[in-house]
């Protein structure tokens, strides 16, 4: 059975360990802004973990001219096939939720791929605010 990425905002303390873990494992050298999961403060002591929703009818997939965004049937994640991407960058503004990141000098977009089904952020969350179930 395919697992689902679940966020539990009430457990989140805004410690941003998930962001750190993500930006380390995904090779963006700890730059939080390039993390594929982000924590937003939404009120007093209230936080919201934001990451790709892996939409069923995804806008990013729809706009890609080269079919470089492909769903991994095992994990359910939409993954970037870097070999097929021409770097037009349209997936970033196309995403209505802001979960695609594209920098021209990197040439390919960055997005959450659920780390192949075993997300690092889940493993590192010290408060049980992220789960795969």
């Amino acid at each position: 059975m395919q697992k689902t990425f679940v966020v539990i905002p009430r457990n989140c303390t805004g410690c941003r360990t998930c962001e750190l873990a993500c930006s380390m494992i995904k090779g963006t050298e700890g730059v939080f802004a390039r993390s594929r999961i982000n924590i937003y403060k939404v009120g007093d002591e209230r936080y919201m973990q934001m990451t790709c929703l892996q939409c069923v009818e995804a806008a990013c997939v729809k706009v890609c001219p080269t079919e470089a965004l492909v769903r991994n049937e095992l994990t359910g994640a939409i993954e970037v096939d870097e070999e097929r991407c021409v770097g037009c960058g349209l997936c970033e503004p196309a995403c209505p939720f802001g979960h695609m990141h594209f920098e021209l000098n990197e040439g390919v977009p960055v997005k959450c791929d659920l780390c192949g089904g075993d997300p690092t952020c889940v493993k590192f969350c010290p408060h049980g605010a992220l789960e795969m179930k």
Binding site: A59, L90, P93, A94, G98
Partner: peptide, 29 residues
């Protein structure tokens, strides 16, 4: 070009990713 050639609403292209995320976060909240 995107509005003319890709079948998505025009207002998708008005906001940056960070603002979209922020908006969505408070909506979820």
């Amino acid at each position: 070009y995107a509005i003319a050639n890709r079948d998505l609403p025009a207002d998708y292209y008005t906001t940056c990713s960070a603002c979209k995320k922020k908006k969505l976060a408070s909506h979820f909240d």
